[in-house]
Amino acid sequence: MADTPEEIKKAQKKYLLIGLILFAFTIVTVAVATVPALDFGKHGFDTWDAIIGLCIASVKATLVALIFMHLNHEKKSIYLFIVLGVLGGLSLIGLTGWAFIDPIEYGTATEGNGFFNPEMVIEEE
């Protein structure tokens, strides 16, 4: 944490620089998404644009968190809170997503579903 006046003055230069970098990244994101010449992948909006956009957003978010919010010289315990929060969010999205992606496969009376074969003979005991 910058505490002396000189350190704070230096830090302010850093903040301004990071701010300009964030501006630049924003422009890049919009350009990639809108300018036809910068169209990767399919014409119009597609997965590549989404990935690039989200990656740039994550970098911006990391810069804001580490530098503007002083996380890079904060105590370990604070990291713990944020890590818990992020892990919680990921487990929510991840496990819910998994539950959506892996549904029960309903078979039919004659075709089964890969696990159960209706023609299978069950031994009577």
């Binding site: 496990l95 998994w98 539950a99 029960i104 696990f115």
Partner: peptide, 21 residues
């Protein structure tokens, strides 16, 4: 406790793999 919640939802049509988790 944060990764067990869907045991309240076993009858919502989740597949065998995620149910196993």
């Amino acid at each position: 406790s944060f990764v067990v919640w869907a045991h309240h939802m076993y009858l919502t049509g989740m597949g065998p793999v995620v149910s196993t988790w």
